[in-house]
Design a protein around this nucleic acid. Structure first.
Length: 803
DNA sequence: AGTACGAGCGCG
DNA sequence: GCGCTCGTACTT
């Protein structure tokens, strides 16, 4: 008897281990490790992943596997190992680690049904209206129709009705009709002679098949021959054609044409940089490279050419791009070079589209995947290279469980496949650059732009000075002049506004009362369109009040600089300018992002005003001015990475100007022009910034000098939360080595969210073999309270956000 | 997580 | 003695 070790779809501490099941004979030759199965678990049925097929078990009685959900495994042996590793690293559950690797559409859906086994007349009076002639009903109807559950239980006991647990895959397949000849060539030709002269269309179709003889989608056939379904039907009646259904891929890039591009001639610097990567590929050696190249230095061309090398070896490539930079422009570059060999994965795709792209990878129909974070789990089996573009981007760290970093997963997979990992950035994360300096990663530098263009000039404007001179607008005089200049020259402008730290809160000018969320410690944000105030952390919202709820004054106003407000001010100052605004609000709809960019690209607007999302990857020929409206809005947030993030952002934004013939210019407005971050960013001096910032990190014992683990406790009762956090800190202190530093408990920067108080402990450590164990122990101690008492303990290793 | 089951309590 | 509620232990 064969036995399957299965991880069941129940995310809980107690069930986070393999369970053994008997493989029934009928499945013996079907079930392989990595497949999804349906198993009985207690009284119900759940989905599970087969981790292993074994011959022996310690248990006497095993339940048999109920059903198999896959024909081929969805997890490769490598991914199974990777899942175990992720669980260890992030202290998550097996099941969570595996679920995150697969497209959402493969997640199991559970349904409960009630079947009537007896005749309806035999049921008790209460149950009679339930079935109404049907033999099976959804279980939920019991509640809907308010039928006492006790009566149902009785009926179950008496064997009159039965509960069924059903596990379904959300997976849907799109089918399409195809047509193919039903006879061979000669028979078709013979048949033609019998056609009446009037049957022109029928004749054309048969002639088409004589020429092509392959199957073709019905829709395509009708389109090319300008005919209708009825004509085809006639031919089917004559037995000349037949139709069949075929799985179709939903291809989001179906209707687009990509013009094949050829590898470009590399500059001397690029050649230098590409050489060691290619050596790793040839020698099948795992190395991590940091490709540190200024914006416009041709990193992408290096990616493309190394991938070409990999493909020639018959291997595959993963390219990660930050979600926000996964623009049509970027996709275009890969599709143009590698054509149909490319799958694309990003959040803009529908679940069905994502599944189809994933299937292409699974079936080895593509060789390259370009995608956001989760594409790192692409089920390739012969990886030849992993590339992470803009490796410093915080979106590579997953915010919910499992809280993994794509960079770490990339290194795991690189080691497994003995292939290089390339981290590319103009402004590497400090951790990464420090590792490169130490020799852990191999540093490759591109210091010049291709064609030796210089980086655009940067002007820093001191906004305090502006204010002193009586300019109270959010545009400095210099910026206004420059915008006017561009407008008259018909050139384009990109204005960047960092919204963080500038949310539009509402304040009473009379008494100074600000409107807060009653469930969270945060100001409500004003949404102009709906005239409502909303909380960004919970779903609380109220209509904008006409009077201050405290002092009843009518001088209540909204403050802050949102993109909407800037847009209005901008339009007032430059009435003739055509403005496109890009932020979460204007890009919410599917395809809006792409559409707005295309509009700007076709010069149907003069100014592109936007948030983070326009900072990356944009490349427009006629943009000659980039303005940063408030460079330091993010510099003073309570986050040790705020300087690093600001430097990265300023550098990136600056890179949007003057990428082509026309020279570009950058203007940065700031209230702290003397800050090293602003100053060094304006000089594009990453190296200096690195040293300066490293000194600060060392002084305050932050990464890369120390690793961090952030443990957040939350509960509706503040006293209890503090108690737990204190006990936790004690446990950490007593169990960890003296080398590590335990900070806290401290109130989280956002003390209360959704009526829960939040306190945190931070562990700073260099080597701490007992850390995982200790935190596991803490979680064990509070396991019960977490299950029953609404206590939450969240652990984040190497956190990005300390909130 | 979801469920079954047992201890403890109220009522007849 | 039975029925209800709540806490607990278990799922292969």
């Amino acid at each position: 008897m064969k036995i399957a070790r299965v991880i069941v779809d129940v995310p809980a501490f107690q069930t986070d281990r393999p369970f053994d099941y008997e493989i029934p004979e009928k499945f013996e030759h079907m079930i392989e490790k990595g497949m999804r199965v349906i198993v009985p678990f207690g009284p119900r049925k759940v989905m599970g992943f087969v981790l292993e097929v074994a011959d022996q078990t310690d248990l006497k009685h095993l339940k048999p596997i109920d059903d198999v959900m896959d024909l081929t495994p969805v997890l490769t042996g490598e991914l199974i190992e990777l899942g175990k590793w992720i669980r260890e690293q992030t202290l998550s559950f097996h099941i969570t680690a595996y679920q995150v690797m697969l497209p959402q559409a493969l997640k199991a859906k559970y349904e409960k049904e009630l079947e009537c086994l007896a005749l309806e007349e035999e049921l008790s009076d209460e149950l009679k209206p339930l079935f109404a002639g049907r033999s099976v009903i959804p279980f939920a109807e019991i509640q809907e129709k308010q039928i006492p559950y006790r009566k149902v239980q009785e009926a179950i006991k008496d064997g009159l009705v039965e509960v069924h647990y059903i596990v379904k895959s959300k997976e849907t397949r799109k089918k399409s009709t195809w047509v193919k000849p039903a006879k061979d060539l000669h028979q078709l030709e013979e048949a033609l002679e019998d056609f009446s002269p009037a049957a022109k269309k029928q004749r054309a179709i048969v002639e088409f098949f004589i020429e092509h003889k392959d199957a073709i989608p019905l829709k395509q056939l009708l389109d090319t021959l300008h005919t209708t379904r009825q004509t085809v039907q006639q031919l089917m009646k004559k037995g000349l054609l037949q139709t069949f259904k075929k799985d179709e891929y939903r291809d989001p890039y179906n209707n687009r044409e990509f013009i094949q591009t050829k590898p470009k001639e590399l500059t001397g610097e690029q050649k230098q940089a590409i050489k060691p990567i290619e050596e790793s590929i040839v020698n099948e050696k795992h190395d991590v490279f940091l490709l540190h190249g200024v914006t416009g230095s041709g990193k992408t061309e290096i990616y493309l050419q190394t991938i070409e090398k990999v493909l020639k070896k018959g291997k595959e490539a993963i390219v990660l791009v930050p979600e926000i930079a996964l623009t049509p422009q970027m996709v275009q570059r890969f599709k143009s070079r590698f054509g149909a060999d490319v799958a694309v994965m990003h959040s803009g795709l529908s679940p069905g589209e994502k599944l189809d792209e994933w299937r292409k990878i699974q079936r080895q129909e593509v060789k390259v995947v370009v995608g956001a974070r989760s594409a790192i789990f692409a089920p390739f089996q012969n990886l030849g290279i992993i590339i992470i573009d803009e490796e410093h981007e915080s979106s590579y760290k997953q915010e919910d469980n499992p809280k993994y970093h794509a960079r770490d997963v990339a290194v795991f997979r690189g080691q497994y496949h003995r292939c290089p990992v390339v981290l590319g950035s103009a402004t590497p994360a400090l951790e990464t650059y420090a590792r490169a300096k130490k020799g852990v990663y191999r540093l490759l530098t591109l210091s010049r732009r291709i064609n030796n263009q210089s980086m655009p000039e940067v002007e820093i404007v001191d906004m305090r000075e502006e204010l002193h001179r009586g300019n109270r607008s959010m545009f400095s005089r210099s910026l206004q002049e420059k915008i006017q200049e561009r407008l008259s020259r018909k050139e384009q402008i990109v204005l960047f506004l960092n919204r963080r730290g500038y949310s539009t809160f509402v304040i009473c000018r009379d008494c100074g009362h600000t409107l807060q969320c009653p469930h969270c410690d945060i100001s409500l944000t004003y949404h102009r369109k709906q005239e409502r105030l909303k909380c960004h952390y919970c779903s609380y919202e109220i209509p904008m009040p006409g009077r201050c709820p405290e002092c009843y004054s009518d001088t209540i106003r909204y403050f802050g600089t949102g993109t909407q407000k800037v847009e209005e001010a901008l339009q007032l100052t430059f009435p003739e300018a055509r403005i496109i605004r890009m932020d979460v609000d204007t890009t919410r709809n599917k395809g809006a992002h792409e559409r707005l960019l295309a509009e700007f690209g076709h010069r149907r607007a003069d100014i592109l005003l936007g948030t983070q999302m326009i900072a990356k990857g944009l490349d427009f020929e006629h943009v000659t001015l980039v303005g940063v409206l408030a460079a330091d809005s993010m510099l003073h947030l309570p986050d040790f990475r705020s300087a690093e993030k600001t430097f990265q952002l300023l550098t990136q934004v600056s890179g949007r100007a003057g990428r082509h013939e026309l020279p570009g210019e950058v203007l940065i407005q700031t209230y702290t022009p003397e800050h090293y971050t602003v100053e060094l960013a304006s000089k594009y001096d990453y190296e200096q910034f690195f040293y300066k910032e490293m000194q600060i990190r060392k002084k305050f014992q932050y990464p890369p000098y120390y690793y961090l683990a952030l443990i957040t406790v939350s509960h509706p009762n503040q006293i209890y939360t503090i108690e737990v956090a204190q006990r936790m800190a004690k446990m950490l202190n007593s169990r960890l080595s003296g080398q590590s530093k335990v900070l806290g408990p401290t109130p989280s920067p956002l003390l209360r969210i959704k009526d829960r108080y939040r306190y945190q402990c931070m562990v700073k450590y260099k080597v701490e073999s007992k850390l995982q164990m200790t935190i596991k122990r803490i979680l064990q101690v509070y396991e019960e309270d977490m299950q029953k008492n609404d206590l939450q303990i969240v652990v984040d290793f190497q956190p990005y956000h300390l909130m």
